[in-house]
């Protein structure tokens, strides 16, 4: 079977190519702004964040959804985070330790991830893209891509959505 993953091939990830030996204290700080929307029926968006690196399978680092719904019902709509679902989500089981989280309210939402803990891999040197995708029930979907190069010391990137996401930024430090 050949599953095509938007140009990335399926290689083992985590323990493999992303890991840079003893990766003491890689800290990834993310800010994802959920816009306040003036709509008749508002539900907080489902948001997925994943890391892409050429030649490596994408790695999901955060998924915000209705984790607490009875019987795992919240997972029913995960596929609406469409590009993430195809790239990485559909091969995962939920809830995913250190990755799954509740949906967030409008405003800047901050997350700090430590390399090698939870869903966050320790990153080897190279070029990455952090992708943030938001899909809202009875609303729209938007995706912001933040390319960055990890040189082992520091990296930063910022972007902005226009409908379902506001400002999105990352800083990565050792």
């Amino acid at each position: 079977m050949q599953i095509r993953l938007t140009g990335l091939s399926f290689t083992a990830l985590g323990a493999g190519a992303l890991v840079a030996g003893p990766a003491a204290g890689q800290t990834l700080d993310l800010t994802v702004t959920i816009p306040k929307l003036n709509v008749a029926e508002y539900h907080r968006p489902y948001v997925a964040m994943w890391l892409e690196k050429e030649g490596v399978a994408p790695r999901t680092i955060q998924v915000w959804y209705d984790v607490d719904k009875r019987g795992g019902e919240g997972t029913k709509w995960l596929r609406d985070i469409r590009q993430w679902w195809r790239a990485a989500g559909r091969g995962m089981t939920f809830p995913a330790d250190g990755v799954s989280g509740a949906t967030r309210a409008p405003g800047p939402q901050k997350v700090r991830l430590i390399g090698g803990r939870g869903g966050m891999p320790a990153l080897s040197l190279g070029n990455y893209t952090l992708v943030v995708e938001a899909a809202r029930e009875v609303g729209g979907r938007e995706l912001v891509r933040l390319p960055f190069a990890w040189n082992g010391n520091s990296a930063a990137a910022a972007g902005k959505g226009s409908t379902e996401l506001g400002a999105v930024s990352l800083t990565l430090k050792r």
Partner: peptide
């Protein structure tokens, strides 16, 4: 109604 679904019981 759907060709791509997520979750374990649909």
């Amino acid at each position: 109604s759907s060709t791509t679904v997520s979750g374990a019981d649909n």
